[in-house]
Design a binder for these strands. Structure first.
Lengths: 230, 230
DNA sequence: ATTGTTTCTGTGACATTGTTATGCCATGGG
DNA sequence: CCCATGGCATAACAATGTCACAGAAACAAT
């Protein structure tokens, strides 16, 4: 009748510390002892709050999905939906690079500390991409894309962007065929392939590049991702 | 002046056992003790033959590259180079799914047992894709693709196929937007995007589907990948 | 055939990992 | 004020990669 409540502060601190360690020093910096030592608690804190190391990783993954969604929310919906799509892709790519290790777990199929995604987690991840589906719908209604299932078109964009990001993080896209060039090229090809005019594509791509700085690069979350909470 | 030679048989046995364990039971089945116990030696065998666990993984990765290259070599070079390209993509995808854990290390940026690719390893991986570059060149010379850098076009194909495979292995491509549908869709979009006529694309895709069975699915290597060596 | 040198290989140990059984004690309702 | 509930620290367990240390086996020279 009189339990001792879990301290939400230490819970948040553990997630923050783990995320920062993962981002800064990679997977080998993730161990119960290292994390809890930095938090000033014992290893048991991980188990009372998350059940296991996997539970902590799951928490970070959900945080990662939420962050991606907030990134997407900052991209405006203009009367040039194709440019919107390009900006969304850039936001996706930038977010992935800012949290590369977490991204590998979220979308790259990488298991971390024995954790791998459940169907529920993947549902969460797919939900994030509804923004892209919506954007594809607007592209179709604007007459830029051929009339087709917007979900399918959104998947095309997702697959291409994910493939690029993943190979980029793997160190496979190097000069002179670097990631930036590949990204522009495949995006243009794909946009033409789904029905847009080559000339319109070029114009929208140019517009998107101007919008990047304001809508995704000037992002306080990038700092938050690295900095400690307090 | 009288050293004792390394036994190449145990070396090969270790690689085979490790590859089979990885394919059948995943990453947690890879430990020096488990592998060497199955090989009937002590854990030291790993260190004398490969220096460390990472060395053994590197060996498996190189074996994986070689296998992919042999897969590619079985795809014919016909007078419909676009169909050739589609068959190559299918071979790539099939190989990745038959050795999913190894593929994740080869191209997915996944580190395994502390191993991660060196620049030299990646060079090896990129070399494998020269087959795709050659095919892109033939597509251009046949007037099917616009005149552009064939290396860049090959990268577009690679990125799309890799993105699809990686999301598929991650369990993200589910009905009704499943991997097969996504693969056909993005490949068609991309082929149109790099300059081919939509009608020609459809024809070549149909041709490639007929060729799949003979040129990539009837492959004794798929069995070899799982079965033990003897 | 014997010897000697070289190097593989088995044994055992060390540090580190995730996880948990076992208590202590802080907390908050009665 | 009391006391039970459950978070937390301590310490242990099994399993991991790795290596120091012999011992033995293999090869070259005599």
């Amino acid at each position: 009748m009189s339990p001792r409540k879990l301290d939400p502060e230490t819970r948040a601190a553990l997630v923050d510390i783990a995320a920062r360690r993962l981002a800064e020093h990679g997977v080998e910096a993730l161990s119960t002892r290292k994390i809890t030592a930095e938090a000033g608690t014992s290893t048991m804190a991980v188990y009372t709050h998350f059940g296991s190391m996997s539970g902590l990783v799951r928490e970070m993954v959900h945080e990662g999905f939420a962050r991606l969604e907030r990134q997407f929310a900052k991209v405006r919906r203009t009367d040039d939906p194709v440019a919107d799509m390009a900006v969304l892709g850039y936001a996706y790519r930038r977010n992935a690079k800012a949290n590369s290790h977490l991204y590998a777990v979220m979308f790259g199929g990488q298991s971390l500390a024995g954790f791998s995604l459940t169907d529920e987690d993947r549902q969460y991840g797919r939900y994030t991409l509804l923004t892209v589906v919506d954007c594809a719908t607007r592209c179709i209604e604007a007459g830029r894309f051929r009339r087709d299932d917007p979900i399918l078109i959104a998947h095309e964009m997702w697959i291409a962007t994910h493939g690029l990001v993943n190979l980029e993080l793997g160190g496979y896209l190097i000069d002179p065929v670097n990631a930036d060039r590949c990204y522009d090229t495949i995006l243009e090809s794909l946009l033409v392939g789904v029905g847009d005019e080559p000339r319109s594509v070029s114009a929208s791509m140019a517009t998107s590049k101007k919008r990047r700085r304001r809508e995704v690069e000037a992002d306080p979350e990038q700092a938050e991702a690295v900095a400690s909470r307090r």
